[in-house]
């Protein structure tokens, strides 16, 4: 399967996951939407994460598939965040800040552009999904708090007069705040829908990121292959594939990409020529008291094989 197909299938996976995260089953067994409010928050988080992670980037979508890929990355992230955020309560703000921080963090050697799902972000998203599922479960059982703790001693006294102080309720919420349907929720099928949706969007986003990287490399390779065979091989030796992203060759138009390759080849060749000249002018140092380090460096520069140490 080529990179373009992989990109298409990864977007399809994201779309399917988004569809599953958009649905829930109410108490009557009817399919009900999960509402626009969570998607709104998810879209804001996705937008902020995309802008922060793409700061300084000059890449643009170059064809229909690129547009689909970028849209899928944005929508997938919005669906994912909307799917895991508990859509109310004071913890919502903490969740948003944590997600923003995790989604914009990226290692310097990171291959893809835009927000990425690191393993840390995936773990955080999974934990948030668990919190949301727990809230949904409590709501489906008509319990409107995260948990209820019995107060020791007082709760053992069988006087109904003490009922109000026998238990402490933590994290109270109401069904409207959490977007639960008026007729309640069928937790089992909804759990299956959301878990499958989460898995599909997460894996789709990771897959899309890798496929997009591979497709950009394929484009650069195709541009270089328009040169005569020997020259193309030489250019690929001069500018190795692992450096294409770092050298800013991703996300460029055909014309700009050619110009950039020309510039990089010229710069690389100039550097090599300067070095060759310098190397020819450098006399044999003939060190008086060569230490091992200096000797090894000289051997490396002169291209001689190091002397075989005697037995």
């Amino acid at each position: 399967m080529n990179a373009a197909s992989q990109l298409g299938y990864s977007c399809l996976l994201i779309a399917i996951g988004g569809l599953l995260l958009a649905l829930q089953l109410d108490g009557d067994g009817a399919v009900v939407g999960t509402g626009y409010a969570p998607l709104g928050i998810g879209a804001v988080v996705a937008l902020a994460a995309t802008l922060l992670a793409s700061a300084g980037s000059t890449t643009l979508p170059r064809d229909g598939l690129d547009v689909l890929s970028s849209a899928s990355a944005f929508l997938g992230l919005a669906f994912l965040v909307a799917g895991v955020l508990a859509p109310g309560g004071s913890w919502l703000f903490f969740e948003v800040f944590i997600l923003l921080w995790l989604l914009t963090r990226r290692a310097p050697q990171e291959k893809s552009s835009g927000p990425i799902l690191t393993s840390g972000a995936c773990v955080a998203l999974a934990l948030m999904l668990l919190l949301r599922l727990w809230i949904a479960y409590q709501g489906s059982e008509n319990r409107w708090q995260l948990m209820e703790i019995s107060v020791p001693l007082i709760s053992w006294i069988p006087w109904s007069l003490l009922d109000p102080i026998k238990t402490i309720q933590l994290g109270s919420f109401d069904p409207t705040e959490m977007g639960l349907p008026a007729t309640g929720m069928r937790f089992g099928p909804t759990l299956a829908l959301w878990s499958c949706g989460f898995a599909a969007v997460t894996s789709g986003l990771i897959w899309r990121s890798r496929a997009a990287y591979e497709m950009e490399n394929d484009r650069i390779h195709a541009t270089i292959q328009t040169l005569p065979g020997a020259l193309a091989r030489l250019v690929e030796r001069l500018i190795p594939e692992e450096d294409w992203k770092r050298l800013g060759l991703h996300g460029l138009s055909e014309r700009v990409r050619c110009k950039r390759i020309e510039m990089l080849v010229e710069k690389e060749m100039r550097g090599r020529r300067e070095f060759d000249t310098l190397l020819r002018r450098t006399p044999n140092l003939q060190l008086q008291k060569p230490n091992a380090f200096a000797a090894q460096i000289e051997i490396a520069i002169q291209g001689e094989t190091p002397p075989n140490p005697g037995p």
Binding site: L12, G18, L23, D26, T34, G35, Y36, L75
Partner: peptide, 16 residues
Amino acid sequence: CGVLFLAAIFLRGVNP
């Protein structure tokens, strides 16, 4: 993908 994305957005507004 386009159809599914549109469905994923519009189905969120489905009321019982």
